[in-house]
Amino acid sequence: MTAPWRAVKRFPIAGMLAGLLCVAACPVARAADNSVVEQRAVTFNHAQTNYMLHCGGCHGTLGLSPPHSVPLLRGQAGWLVCDPQGRAYVDGLPNVTRASLSDADLADVLNFVIFTLGASPGSAHAAPFTAREVSAMRAAPESTVPLHLRRQQAVERIIKVCGAPKSLLDYKPM
């Protein structure tokens, strides 16, 4: 470790040249570091990829989001299907029903979010989403009850009926 420093001390011009070389090569070196990250990248399946592309921007690629601005999904979303009213809230989410995905692909994304990413005691005994359920929820007219109110009612109910954590109330839409 000490030898290169000694060399730079003894031959300042060599040190300067090395510095110049570093400046020239820095972007390349950084990009090379990037390629190491690329080689180690995790491969996501179809449902996970669709989650990242359609939900992960706001809800976080790991399901972790600023809970006051965006509802937290990781370890929490599963509570919503412990009760029919909670499930109806999920079925009526506009950005879910309007996602540019087929019924089957959307069912796969919902199952990933509810039973894997957001798995909780509340989702342990719930039925998985199917393309048929997705098709029906897309055909249903959108509720006239404001979305924030629907969420508040659904969350208060699952806290009371299923024992869901009160942290579900952290989301405070403006």
């Binding site: 690329e38 995790v42 491969t43 996501f44 996970q48 990829t49 990242m52």
Partner: peptide, 8 residues
């Protein structure tokens, strides 16, 4: 521009 993973 963080890399999340490989898309399938």
């Amino acid at each position: 521009a963080a890399l999340v993973g490989v898309a399938e």
